[in-house]
Design a protein around this nucleic acid. Structure first.
Lengths: 200, 200
DNA sequence: GTCTATAGGAAGATAGAC
DNA sequence: GTCTATCTTCCTATAGAC
């Protein structure tokens, strides 16, 4: 049962950290969700911080390898953009609370956040996008745009709507399920908006 | 000195809540920043929650009236979009931590957040944008687009880059000041991208 | 490994003197 | 109004029996 217990703890911890954030999560609640007591929890994970880093790493590993696969693949720029957006939106519609969790930790637990990110061994890499845009500009095929601004626009349109979901749902009076449908519909919209923004 | 003390508390509390969020802010720290003791702090604001709502309202009042002025003014749609983006970017470059603060409270202290929002008396109103787009579609001048998606795109491109600032600064190795310059440069970029996304 | 009991400390809030 | 001292509660983490 021993290895199993550790897995059960980790899986519950991921849920609770996602729901409540680092500060809001309670070791007591994590122990309860795994049907064990606080003593045993500390036996497997010496401190709350160590448990958090392990949980965060496990969450990040659901996204990073997929993205890297697409980026390193032999596809056209447009196909890659399409696929990256698809991966993000699919991941986020399945885990709508992920963005708020991430950005909360970035801003209020920066050290722990970067420690967790670095522990995954992955580093964000936009070389592919930068090269494509800079070449396009040189060859006079694309408008002059800072590639970083392009990336910011893309990530913004993908991720932000998940952050603002509670407000929209509240004031526009739509259900959570309807909102997730809207998010799926955004895929094509975002691709078009991004590609259009590069055209002369 | 009495009314003054209350103002000093509130002004310091705004800073600390912005820095640390509701959960992270400590009544002790707020008292210290105002150079008073915890007893007196609770004399002016009976609970942390009451203090938070007051601070939040004061922050929101720096944005909401300005936006409403522009929306109700007699300008063209394009001018309004330009002005709204300008107001947001100017406010956010002056208060880069505001978005992370807001979205943290939305997700982890939803009740307190909506209580604070409602206490301002303002309600988000996108009627102007909805009407313009729906009319444009009917008259066959614009592409078919859900006005809500258009608003989401706009807010995303305005606000999200401030949320992701710590990551970009970290991995792209640029300074906070340089990043703020990038944000100011986004004004025109966002206007163009948005307007372009409506064209047939 | 798993449990109970408890140490040790921090935070919000109150009581009461001045 | 302003202060000090204290109450109460809750949290992380450890000690030690089984």
């Amino acid at each position: 049962m021993s290895e199993n217990t550790k897995e059960i703890i980790l899986s519950g911890a991921k849920e609770i950290f996602l729901e409540k954030g680092f500060q809001g999560a309670r070791m007591r609640d994590i122990a309860e969700r795994a049907n064990i007591n606080k003593g045993l929890l500390h036996y497997y994970f010496k401190s709350k911080k160590i448990l958090f880093v392990a949980a965060f790493k496990s969450i990040a590993m659901e996204l990073f390898p997929k993205l890297e696969n697409v980026i390193k693949s032999r596809r056209s720029f447009y196909e890659k953009i399409e696929l990256i957006i698809d991966i993000y939106i699919e991941l986020l519609t399945g885990n709508p609370k992920l963005p708020s969790f991430i950005f909360n930790e970035i801003n209020y637990n920066k050290d722990i956040f970067f420690e967790s990110i670095l522990s995954t061994g992955f580093v964000p890499n936009f070389t592919m996008i930068k090269d494509f845009i800079n070449n396009g500009i040189e060859e006079n095929k694309l408008i002059k745009i800072d590639p970083l601004q392009f990336v910011l626009n893309g990530l913004s349109m993908i991720i932000f709507p998940f952050l603002i979901q509670p407000i929209v749902v509240y004031f526009e009076n739509i259900s959570g399920d309807e909102y997730l449908k809207l998010m799926k519909m955004r895929k094509k919209l975002i691709v078009d908006t991004l590609i259009n923004s590069l055209k002369k």
